[in-house]
Amino acid sequence: MVRRRVLARQLRLLREQAGLTLEEAAPKLHFSVSKLSRIENAQVVIDIHWVKSMLDLYDVGGTRWTEFVELAQEALQPGWWRAYGLGNNSYIALETEASRLQEFTLSYVPGILQTADYARALMCAVPLQRTEEQLENEVAARIYRQQRLTSDDNPLAVIAVIDESTLHRPVGGAEIQREQLAHIAKLAELDTVALHVLPTAVGAHAALPSGFMILSFGDLDEPDMAYVEHSLGALSLDKAGDVARARLTFERVLSDALDPAESLALIRRLAGR
């Protein structure tokens, strides 16, 4: 999805640099205006032959031609999550391309820090129709994501703020919760993870209504995106104003939270009970 967004944004820029409006370019490409608009907004999967036609029209050649064709090919490659039965429009498709994740959770441990048993207990609590195979695939995919926390080639930096109440909620029972606390204490020691606990004593805070995430994409030069999961689904926000508000909210929550050393000490105490 992210590669498709990068390609779509670059194709729109090429059209504008060629001095063509949507209405002028579409008929030359044998597209409707609405189809070309959907392509430039990454609302459809882009066929590589469409890309070549657009490059011809916009007079793009040489190494730039090759770069765009390679990007189009990358955008068409199935993601690793497809092997687990997950769609391309899932959150995982976004996180896989991200270089940094900032996340605040109110009532559960962030997905990328969960154990398999904790994740399974959370998923079983949600009233969704799943076969046993689908459930186990989703759990396996969630655990697979953690590989990037220790990757040398493609690491993901995580800054997580967890509401203190999460540490006391026995998801799956006391033993599963204890193992989960021990697990996040171990992950918090990684260079890629900065873990903060927001004390209950803080009271009202900037993100009281819901948890959320902010994804940054590094070298892809893709704008940051905010992502909100809720009881009935999820919402992605990429408008600059929405993302700026998410950043400000995260900064305020982070300023109220314990530092990583204090947070880790608290988690270890609770895990030892």
Rank of each mutant, 00 (worst) to 15 (best):
D152R: 15
E67V: 06
K186R: 15
Y84S: 05
A185K: 00
Q102N: 13
Q147T: 10
I112S: 09
R130K: 08
V69E: 07
I184A: 11
R130V: 03
V69W: 03
A121T: 04
I92R: 03
L106H: 14
E175D: 09
V158W: 04
E164S: 07
T115I: 00
A125W: 15
E95A: 06
N88W: 12
E133R: 11
E136H: 05
A98H: 03
V69H: 07
W80P: 07
K186S: 10
P78M: 05
M123F: 07
L106E: 14
A174Y: 15
E164H: 10
A119N: 09
I92V: 06
E136N: 03
Q146M: 09
L187C: 10
P110C: 03
Y84F: 10
E133W: 05
A188N: 03
L106D: 12
R100Q: 13
Q73K: 10
H168M: 14
R130T: 09
T96G: 07
T166M: 12
R142C: 11
A140Q: 13
A83F: 03
S107V: 14
H183K: 08
R178I: 13
T150W: 13
L113K: 05
R130Q: 11
A141Q: 09
E70M: 06
D117I: 11
E133K: 09
T131S: 09
I143Y: 11
A140C: 11
P170K: 08
Y91V: 10
A185N: 00
